[in-house]
């Protein structure tokens, strides 16, 4: 009498367990459902629509019309696009030579501070929390012909510089402003890496007779090489898309000197109301940036495997 019960009991629990597992998965999938819907609706749909729209003329009143490759033809015949590409490359270049090395240098210098290191960190990061619109308001005044920078220049006896209205200065001025704002976050990331280098290595190098600069060159810099490369790529990806400060401070001027590619996308869409061409510009940009993003992904994975 007891035996069948003993046999059927594990069977029962097995069935139960199966049902339980099924139930468990139901709630697991239910938990994922809202996120999946939102990702599809607000990321995947726009991305696909962008590709589709690049073959259409978008008209809110008359409806969309298929035009084949016309949008792309417009792009390749538009001299502004080449100006935009050139300006974007110039902007990226300036960001590298003016902005990229600053946080590395300061991270190494600040890591040597024994006192007030916390204060310096906070001060360096402070501009990061200033809202972008305030930043624009502030720096427009700094760069003003009667602003403080030109005030110092006049007192020093040199000519004034029209930071924003001079064609050859405008992009440089923007990059200096952005470097001022953003270098703190990069610096803190580097600083953490620099501080995590074992101190014994320096000790050993010093005993072997390495000078200060050789210690930095052969120990500090190689130790943060991966991070430098990663932030380099991230900066490239970020700067290819830069347009907000160009738009807010100069609206792409003077004489299109700060008209970047992304700004052109925005202008095509919201001043020329040519959404089709704007979408096509986006698709082209995606094709170029996809390569960079993949590279970053590989680097990231390497970094993850290491740590």
């Amino acid at each position: 009498m007891n035996q069948p019960a003993a046999v059927s009991k594990p069977l029962d629990t097995q069935v139960q367990r199966k049902a339980g597992r099924w139930k468990k998965h139901v709630s697991g999938y239910l938990f994922l459902l809202p996120a999946a819907i939102i990702f599809i609706l607000f990321l995947w749909v726009p991305i696909t629509k962008g590709i589709i729209y690049s073959f259409y003329t978008i008209d809110f009143v008359k409806g969309n019309e298929f035009v084949g490759l016309d949008n792309y033809k417009t792009i390749f015949n538009d001299p502004d696009v080449w100006i935009g590409v050139k300006n974007t490359l110039y902007y990226m270049f300036l960001c590298l030579i003016i902005g990229f090395w600053v946080p590395i240098l300061f991270a190494i210098a600040i890591s040597e501070l024994r006192r007030f290191q916390g204060f310096v960190r906070v001060a360096a990061y402070l501009p990061n929390v200033i809202p972008a619109v305030v930043l624009y308001g502030l720096w427009r005044w700094f760069y003003d012909p009667v602003g403080p920078i030109n005030g110092v220049l006049t007192q020093a006896g040199s000519d004034q510089i029209a930071f924003l209205t001079n064609k050859s200065w405008s992009m440089i001025s923007l990059v200096i402003m952005e470097t001022w704002q953003q270098f703190g976050s990069g610096m803190l990331i580097y600083l953490a890496a620099v501080l995590s280098i074992p101190r014994d290595w320096y000790e050993a190098a010093e005993i072997d007779g390495a000078g200060i600069f050789r210690r930095i060159w052969h120990i500090t810099l190689p130790s943060i090489r991966g991070l430098v490369l990663l932030l380099f790529l991230l900066q490239l990806i970020a700067t290819t898309q830069g347009f907000q400060s160009q738009l807010a401070l100069l609206d792409g001027g003077p004489n299109k000197a700060t008209l970047t590619y992304s700004l052109l996308i925005v202008k095509y869409a919201f001043t020329r109301l040519d959404y089709g061409v704007a979408s096509a510009l986006g698709v082209l940009m995606f094709l170029v940036l996809g390569g960079l993003a993949l590279l970053q992904f590989k680097l990231n994975n390497k970094g993850a495997a290491k740590s």
């Binding site: 996120a35 999946a36 607000f42 726009p46 991305i47 629509k49 990806i237 347009f243 940009m285 993003a293």
Partner: peptide, 22 residues
Amino acid sequence: FFMITLFIPPSTYIIPNFLNLK
């Protein structure tokens, strides 16, 4: 499926995103 969207730069779909919201 979620993570791949990290690698699509936002400004490439800023316009379709706007049209999508519309």
